[in-house]
C-alpha cells in the first residue's frame, strides 16, 4: 500500500505545522492588552471579574495555560465562547457546512469558467479572444471582492429581483449563487492565467509535435495530449487558491450575512471572543492542510511519474 504509507507520512509531516499554528494563535492572544473579562461588559465588579478569570483559568501562568489548551484541543475541545457560553466546537460545527458549500461552489465556478477561458486564450495567443480573456482575468484579480459583491447584489437582487440579496435561506443554490460567484472571481482569474501559461508551454513540448505528426487536429491534440498535462499545473494553482479563498470567505460571508466560519471569525474578533477566534483560525488551517493533502493525492492519480515512495 504505497498510497496509504504516503498518506500517513504526509499526515505526520503536517503535525509540526499544526502545532506551530496552535502556538502562534495562542501566543498572539495571550499578549492581548487589557483585561479580557472587561471587554465582556462595560463596568464589571472587580470580584466578578476575578471569579470569571478563575473560571476561565486566566490566572495561571502562560505555559500552564498553553499546556492545558493543547491537552483540551487533543480531545477535540476548543474551549467555551466568552460571548455565547457555547462550546466553540459546536459553534464551528454548525457553521462548517455553509462555509464548505460556499467554498466548493466558488471553486467549481472558478474551474468551470477559468480553465476553459485559459484554454481558449492559449489556442490563439495574442488574438482578440486572448486579449479579452486576459483583460477579464487581470480585472478579476484587481477588483475588491466585497465591492463586486455589492454590485452583483445591487444588480441581481435589488434591481432585477432574480436572487435573494443576502442570507442563507434554505441553503439552496439561489442563496448560494451571488456569494459563490463573488468569491470565485479571483481564483477564476488566476486559473485562467495559469491555464493559459501552462497550455502555451505544453504546446511547445516534443510530444505535441509527435501528436501533430500523427495527423491529429489541433482540437484533438489539446484534448488528448495537452489537457492532462495542464491539469497538474491547474491543480497546484487550485491548492494554493483554496487558502486565499478561505481568507476572502471572511469578507464575502460578512457581506452576504452568510452563517459560516468566516462570519463567526469576524464577529468573534470584533467582540474579542478569543476562544472562538482561536478555534475558527485553527479549523481553517486544518481544512487548508487537508485540502492540500487531497491535492497531493490527486497529483499521483493524474501524473503517473509521481510515485508515493
Amino acid at each position: 500500500m504505497p498510497m496509504l504509507s504516503f498518506l500517513i507520512r504526509r499526515l505526520l509531516q503536517t503535525i509540526p505545522t499544526v502545532l506551530a499554528v496552535v502556538l502562534l494563535v495562542f501566543v498572539l492572544f495571550s499578549v492581548v492588552p487589557g483585561s479580557i473579562a472587561s471587554t465582556m461588559s462595560d463596568d464589571v465588579d472587580p470580584q466578578v471579574e476575578l471569579r470569571l478569570k478563575q473560571q476561565l483559568g486566566l490566572n495561571d501562568p502562560v505555559y500552564v495555560r498553553f499546556g492545558k489548551y493543547i491537552a483540551r484541543l487533543a480531545t477535540g475541545d476548543f474551549g467555551t465562547s466568552f460571548r455565547t457560553r457555547e462550546p466553540v466546537t459546536s459553534m464551528i460545527a454548525k457553521r462548517a457546512w455553509p462555509t464548505l458549500q460556499l467554498i466548493f461552489t466558488s471553486m467549481a465556478f472558478a474551474v468551470l469558467v477559468g480553465v476553459p477561458l485559459g484554454f481558449i486564450a492559449a489556442l490563439r495567443p495574442g488574438g482578440f479572444v486572448d486579449s479579452a480573456a486576459m483583460f477579464v482575468a487581470v480585472s478579476g484579480l484587481s477588483i475588491a471582492k466585497f465591492w463586486l459583491g455589492l454590485v452583483l447584489m445591487y444588480l441581481f437582487a435589488l434591481k432585477l429581483g432574480w436572487l435573494p440579496s443576502f442570507g442563507y435561506g434554505d441553503g439552496s443554490l439561489k442563496y448560494l449563487l451571488l456569494p459563490a460567484v463573488t468569491l470565485g472571481v479571483s481564483p477564476m482569474a488566476l486559473l485562467a492565467r495559469t491555464t493559459r501559461a501552462a497550455v502555451l508551454e505544453i504546446m511547445t513540448a516534443d510530444f505535441v509535435r509527435t501528436a501533430r505528426s500523427k495527423g491529429m487536429s489541433e482540437t484533438r491534440v489539446v484534448k488528448w495530449h495537452v489537457m492532462r498535462n495542464a491539469l497538474v499545473i491547474i491543480l497546484t494553482t487550485m491548492g494554493l487558491q483554496f487558502g486565499a479563498l478561505m481568507g476572502q470567505a471572511v469578507v464575502v460571508e460578512k457581506l452576504f450575512s452568510w452563517p459560516g466560519i468566516g462570519s463567526l471569525l469576524v464577529d468573534s474578533v470584533l467582540q474579542r471572543d478569543i476562544p472562538a477566534v482561536q478555534g475558527s483560525i485553527l479549523i481553517v488551517v486544518l481544512a487548508f492542510l487537508a485540502i492540500n493533502l487531497l491535492i497531493d493525492v490527486l497529483y499521483g492519480v493524474i501524473d503517473p511519474r509521481i510515485r508515493y515512495a
Partner: peptide, 8 residues
C-alpha cells in the same frame, strides 16, 4: 524521452 506524452 520527450517525444512521448508522459501522462499517457
Amino acid at each position: 524521452m520527450t517525444a512521448l506524452n508522459p501522462v499517457s
